[in-house]
Simulated scan of single mutants.
Amino acid sequence: MTGTDTVRIRPARRDEAAALTDLALRSKAHWGYDEAFMAACREELTITAERTERSAVAERADGALVGFTTVDGAPPQAVLGMMFVAPEAMGAGVGRLLFAHAADTARASGCTRLVFDADPHAVGFYEAMGAVRIGETPSGSIPGRVLPLMEVRLPR
């Protein structure tokens, strides 16, 4: 994949839940996590049909899904629940498009902050997007593991 000119962001469909779950698992596994870690994360990374209603996907012109994001919460604070990019699309700007969409979605709902737990491998990306680390939060999947808690302010 060579850029974002052939990628569009659109609302996820309920029938895409399994494909988005697969994408999340492939994206997480890209960072070299072992099978036991991935098994522990499976439930947390499973997208339900209901969850797709708060999700947006990055779709190539050929119909391939190359990323997705979910945004939850209510003013003044939105939560970036999930954001994953397919390994084959990493480095092509898809993450930037998805993050901008998530921020715009949060801002449009009246939120002034977007907060989220970050995988340690993604902290540099989020910092490049303007986010700052504000603390840490316990992992929802791995007992004893903590994740960076990040925030980006959303100017009006």
Rank of each mutant, 00 (worst) to 15 (best):
G3Q: 08
T4L: 05
T4A: 13
T4P: 04
D5N: 15
R10M: 10
P11G: 09
R13C: 06
R13N: 06
A18Q: 05
L20P: 00
L20I: 02
L20Q: 02
D22A: 15
D22F: 06
L25V: 07
S27Q: 09
G32M: 11
D34L: 04
E35R: 15
F37D: 07
M38V: 09
A39H: 14
R42E: 02
L45W: 05
T48V: 03
T48L: 02
R51Q: 15
T52V: 00
R54D: 12
A56S: 14
A58M: 03
E59Y: 08
A61T: 08
A61M: 05
D62L: 11
A64C: 00
L65D: 00
G67E: 04
T69I: 13
F84L: 07
V85R: 08
A86Q: 09
A86N: 01
A89V: 09
M90V: 03
R96H: 12
L97T: 03
L98P: 06
L98C: 08
L98S: 06
H101E: 12
A102L: 01
A102K: 11
A102D: 02
A103G: 00
D104E: 15
T105I: 09
A108F: 07
G110V: 02
G110H: 05
T112K: 02
R113V: 12
L114A: 06
L114I: 01
V115Y: 05
F116I: 05
D119W: 11
D119M: 08
H121R: 14
A122M: 06
A122R: 05
F125G: 02
F125W: 02
Y126P: 07
E127G: 02
M129T: 02
A131Q: 08
V132T: 12
T137W: 06
P138R: 01
G140A: 13
V146Y: 15
P148T: 01
E151Q: 14
E151A: 04
P155I: 00
